[in-house]
């Protein structure tokens, strides 16, 4: 029996790892906004997804937006967005800070899918830094995928593009 103990321990350890869920809330919306604006959060603003904005949003997301009104927080050239998109089955919430039309910071706030949470790590989200929106609505940065997390990567890419597009709309409105 003794000689099987290490093997049994290894099996139990592996099964524990396999059962670990990727789900989690990594940062609250309030904490994200506090960090983005150094504690001085601007008043919330609204953008309506109607007319051409809705059409372009649908083009970026590849489906109709789930809501018609999106909140954002902005001061001068900086804006912060908290957006959601379904990866495979459950929504992923991300916070994006944009400055002068470029992504300054992108963070996964909540991940509810059972797998693919590698997208929350810095090594992945750093790839979005300084990305801007090209005229064809694609990101200027090349984003390397993660095997096993394709849909989560795709969701983050869509939200990054959407935030940049909505920021452009906000700037043109002002």
């Amino acid at each position: 029996m003794k000689k099987y103990t290490p093997l049994l321990s290894l099996l139990i350890f592996v099964s524990c790892i396999a059962n670990t869920s990727a789900k989690g809330v990594y940062q609250s919306q309030a904490a994200f906004l506090n960090q983005a604006f150094a504690g001085d959060i601007p008043k919330v603003s609204l953008i309506w997804l109607t007319g051409d904005i809705r059409k372009t949003t649908t083009q970026i997301l590849q489906h109709k937006p789930s809501r018609l009104r999106i909140r954002y927080w902005a001061r001068a050239t900086r804006s912060a967005w908290v957006l959601e998109e379904i990866g495979k089955e459950r929504p992923i919430t991300i916070g994006i800070v944009i400055n002068e039309g470029r992504i300054e910071h992108l963070r996964v706030l909540a991940f509810r899918e059972s797998r693919g949470d590698e997208v929350r790590h810095d090594f992945f989200t750093r790839q979005f830094s300084q990305a801007k929106l090209k005229p064809d609505l694609q990101l200027s940065n090349n984003i390397d995928g993660i095997s096993g997390a394709t849909l989560s990567v795709r969701a983050l890419d869509k939200l990054a593009r959407l935030a940049l597009y909505l920021d452009q709309q906000r700037q043109s409105k002002n």
Partner: peptide, 14 residues
């Protein structure tokens, strides 16, 4: 909207 389309869901975060 009056047609029943969702504009926004407001929760504790809002």
């Amino acid at each position: 909207t009056p047609a029943g389309e969702l504009i926004e869901k407001l929760g504790p975060n809002e």
